[in-house]
Amino acid sequence: MIVDKITNPLKVGVLGFGGLGQAAARILSCKGEMVWVGAADQQGYAYNSSGLDVQAAIATYSAHGSLGYLPEDGTLSQTSIKDLTNYAACDGYFLALPNLPNTFMADVARQFIQSGWQGVLVDALKRTSAVEQLLELQTQLQEAGITYVTGCGATPGLLTAAAAVAAQSYVEIHSVKITFGVGIANWEAYRATIREDIAHLPGYDVETAKAMSDKEVEALLAQTNGILALENMEHADDIMLELAGICSRDRVTVGGVVDTRNPKKPLSTNVQITGRTFEGKISTHTFTLGDETSMAANVCGPAFGYLKAGMALHRRGLFGLFTAAEIMPQFVK
Rank of each mutant, 00 (worst) to 15 (best):
I2W: 04
I6M: 07
P9A: 02
V12E: 00
V12N: 01
V14N: 01
G16Y: 00
F17I: 08
A25H: 02
A25D: 01
I27W: 06
S29C: 13
K31H: 04
G32D: 13
G32I: 11
M34D: 03
A40S: 15
A40C: 12
D41W: 03
D41P: 01
Q42T: 15
Q42M: 12
G44I: 04
S49K: 14
S50E: 15
L52P: 14
L52T: 14
L52V: 10
D53N: 11
V54N: 05
V54K: 04
A56V: 09
A59D: 09
A59V: 02
H64W: 00
G65C: 03
G65M: 02
P71V: 00
D73E: 00
S77F: 07
Q78S: 11
A88P: 10
A88D: 00
A89Q: 11
C90G: 10
G92T: 08
P98A: 06
N99M: 00
I113T: 07
Q114V: 14
Q114N: 13
Q118I: 05
Q118S: 13
V120C: 06
L121I: 01
A124E: 09
L125I: 10
K126W: 09
R127E: 06
A130V: 08
V131H: 02
E132W: 04
L137W: 01
Q142M: 06
Q142R: 12
I146E: 00
T150C: 15
T150K: 05
G151W: 09
G151C: 15
C152D: 03
G153H: 12
G153S: 13
A154N: 09
A161Y: 08
A162I: 05
A166I: 03
Q168H: 15
T179D: 15
W187C: 14
E188A: 14
A189N: 05
E196R: 12
D197Q: 06
A199K: 09
H200W: 02
L201R: 10
L201A: 13
P202H: 02
G203Q: 09
G203M: 07
D205F: 06
V206N: 14
T208Q: 04
A209Y: 07
A211D: 00
A219T: 14
A219P: 07
G226A: 00
E231P: 07
H235G: 04
H235W: 01
D237N: 13
D238Q: 05
I239G: 00
L241R: 12
E242Q: 13
I246T: 05
D250R: 10
R251H: 10
T253N: 08
T253H: 01
G256R: 03
V257S: 03
D259Q: 13
T260M: 02
T260V: 03
N262T: 11
N262Q: 08
N270G: 06
V271P: 08
Q272G: 12
T274Y: 02
R276Y: 05
T277D: 11
E279Q: 10
T284W: 08
H285L: 10
F287W: 01
T288E: 13
L289D: 03
D291R: 15
S294W: 06
A296E: 13
G301V: 08
G301P: 01
G305D: 06
G310F: 06
R315T: 11
R315P: 04
G317F: 00
G320K: 09
E326Q: 15
E326N: 05
I327G: 01
F331L: 14
V332F: 05
